[in-house]
């Protein structure tokens, strides 16, 4: 009986699985094929070559990839450091206040990312909100805050905050309280408890949160355009330029493939290390 149920289940899910597979994979396949076409063609019926990948190294595109990855990495680390105490509070200390905090943070997701970033631009720009008040009241100026690397990292941290906070809180909630107490009872200092108990037991949450923040930040575009004023050209910017201004689809595809590959490997590697089931609430 159970086996029949299983078969029927698989069969009934088949149409949806196929639809999802086609709609997710087809664009990827198209991009992958385009990436091995000769430069500046608009058809996949050409003799394959790898000139677009060669361009990645020869034309210096790897520099913007390094910028993207570096900024994503820095923002992920900073996000983790900011979110850990807050997530710990939400999972273990705050009680009912956690709900308020959750709603407050989740609310920011309702407003579009671009609009929120424009808000920061208006706040921080020369003659903007802060600068204006400072000048009127004390005659001070606030200049040079926008259009540099650090403000892009700030933007990344600001935008991807919920993507680190919530998985982390979920991960911390999974730490059994008695394990922490037992560790303390056996002589562990608060730091040792953090190191020996909290961090390993919250690792699924840490991995998911870090992965989400890193992947999203590495593929982010708006922060560097709006806050950074393109002081730093990020990798996604190069991809966009190749497709639009450059009219070089194979180059754009190759660059996109490189990013997908790096992030894909990272994701598979991290996910394989943790037990996602336990985080989704299924018992081992």
């Amino acid at each position: 009986m159970e086996r029949l149920d299983n078969k029927l289940g698989t069969l009934t899910s088949l149409p949806m699985v196929l639809l999802l597979a086609v709609s997710f994979l087809a664009p990827l396949v198209v991009v992958a094929v385009f990436s091995i076409m000769p430069p500046k063609v608009f058809s996949i019926m050409n003799v394959p070559d790898f000139s677009a990948y060669a361009d990645f190294f020869q034309q210096g595109y790897y520099k913007s990839l390094l910028w993207s990855v570096a900024m994503a990495f820095i923002s992920t680390v900073i996000l983790f450091l900011i979110c850990w105490p807050l997530a710990f509070g939400m999972a273990k200390v705050f009680g009912k206040f956690t709900l308020v905090l959750t709603i407050a943070v989740a609310m920011t997701l309702i407003v579009s990312e671009n609009i929120r970033l424009f808000g920061w631009v208006l706040t921080l720009m020369k003659g903007g909100l802060i600068d204006g008040y400072l000048r009127t009241w004390w005659g001070l100026r606030l200049e040079g805050v926008l259009y540099n690397g650090p403000i892009i990292v700030f933007g990344l941290i600001y935008v991807y905050f919920p993507f680190m906070l919530f998985p982390l809180a979920q991960g911390i909630a999974m730490i059994p309280e008695d394990a922490r107490q037992a560790a303390e009872d056996l002589g562990a200092s608060p730091f040792r408890i953090l190191w020996e108990i909290d961090l390993p037991l919250a690792s699924p949450g840490i991995v998911v949160g870090s992965l989400l923040s890193f992947v999203l930040a590495a593929g982010a575009l708006a922060e560097s355009k709006l806050l950074g004023g393109q002081a730093i050209i990020v990798f996604t910017d190069e991809v966009e330029t190749a497709f639009t201004y450059g009219q070089n689809w194979p180059l754009g595809s190759a660059l996109a493939m490189i990013l997908i590959l790096i992030i894909g490997i990272l994701a598979f590697f991290s996910i394989s290390k943790i037990d996602l089931d336990s985080m989704m609430g299924r018992r081992r």
Binding site: P176, D178, A179, Q181, A182, A183, D185, L186, E196, L201
Partner: peptide, 13 residues
């Protein structure tokens, strides 16, 4: 001093 917990509180990891 130390305690053996009701739940045992072994470290699962």
């Amino acid at each position: 001093t130390c305690m053996v917990f009701q739940s045992l509180a072994l470290f699962p990891h």
